Simulated scan of single mutants.
Amino acid sequence: MSAETSKSAVLLLAHGTPDMLGEMAEYLGKVTGGRAMPQEVVDELQHRYAQIGLKNTPGEEAPPLTKWTMIQGYLLEQALGTGKVYVGMRNWHPYIADVVAQMRADGVTHIKAVCLAPQNSRTSVGLYRKAVLEAATGIEVEFVAGWAESPLLADAFAEKLWPVWAEACAEAGQRVPVLFTAHSVPCRTIMTGEASVAGARPGTPVQDTPDPYPVEAKRTAQMVGERMAAVGFHEKDWYFAFQSQGISGGPWIGPTVEDTLKAIKAEGHIGVVMQPVGFLCDHVEILYDIDIAFRHTATELGLKLWRAESLNDSAVLVEALVDVITGEYKATVDEVMIPA
């Protein structure tokens, strides 16, 4: 396709979240690929979402994940200045398929798709890839599979971490450790073989290398810690854990936050700062899991818990996304594909 006839656009991809409590069962069905969740799981998730403000009726404002993702798309569009930036969700409105259909109607012939999950898991990120390719028949797709080592991403997290770490150390009267986190995934998804096929075309050979997700998540944390060295932060000042293990059964990767908080207490600390480096904005895994559940656990252990502010509308995050899209930062990118 010639440069004269092609029209490129950016598609940001996110998980999606329900708009009302009554949509929880339908939403969870999207997350699980149609597998019904036990009613107690639906009830528990409704409880958690209610704790962060979701109602049984449409609210005046979108849920945090939707709101902040749309804002990030708008800010990126302004920063690029080259046309519309589209936002598609895998598990709720606006669905990826519907957004790609709109892109086709708008004349887009080349999509650069970027997951707002910087660390690449062939299963979770692979599901985004699959959704895009299924919808984008006849459109060129350049899929960014991972950007965990973006220097500007690490800068954005460090910018949010420094003030709260300084505050925590001053208030505690001693050095306070930082606990970096990323979302846990089922153990089967990082094993060789099964984890390699999500989103692959029929006939694609199964890869025999481990899924990169755990390594990339810890690498992002390490890079944030390295940036904090300028203010006296040491390698021994941070820990890493995987949070928000599923409640529907099956083994998930760890260590868990709960076990890590116990270890931090056992080492004699009186407080901890948490920063989730696998999430780019506020949503239930931050506003409930950290701010409510983990804070309660910490209190029971005799620890005070502080949390770094989420990136949300961070200008440095937007710069990081610009670098990923323009190629200034060499992200992990699939070759350009034209789905049949």
Rank of each mutant, 00 (worst) to 15 (best):
S2N: 11
K7M: 11
S8Q: 13
L12W: 08
T17P: 01
P18M: 13
D19R: 15
Q39C: 12
A62K: 14
P64H: 07
I71P: 00
Y74D: 15
N91Q: 08
I96M: 05
I96G: 03
D98G: 14
G107L: 09
C115M: 12
Q119K: 08
S124W: 04
S124G: 02
G126L: 07
A131K: 05
A135M: 07
T137C: 01
E142K: 13
W147R: 11
L153H: 09
W162M: 11
A170G: 04
Q174N: 12
S184H: 04
M191P: 01
A195I: 01
G199E: 00
A200R: 11
P210L: 15
A217G: 00
R219K: 10
G225A: 15
G225K: 13
E226L: 12
R227P: 07
G232N: 04
F233G: 02
F242P: 03
F242V: 00
Q243N: 06
Q245P: 00
Q245N: 05
G249N: 03
P251K: 10
P255I: 00
E258V: 05
D259W: 00
K262V: 10
A263T: 01
A266D: 09
E267H: 11
L280H: 00
H283P: 03
V284N: 03
R295W: 00
R307M: 09
L311Y: 10
N312M: 10
I325E: 08
G327L: 07
G327N: 02
E335K: 08
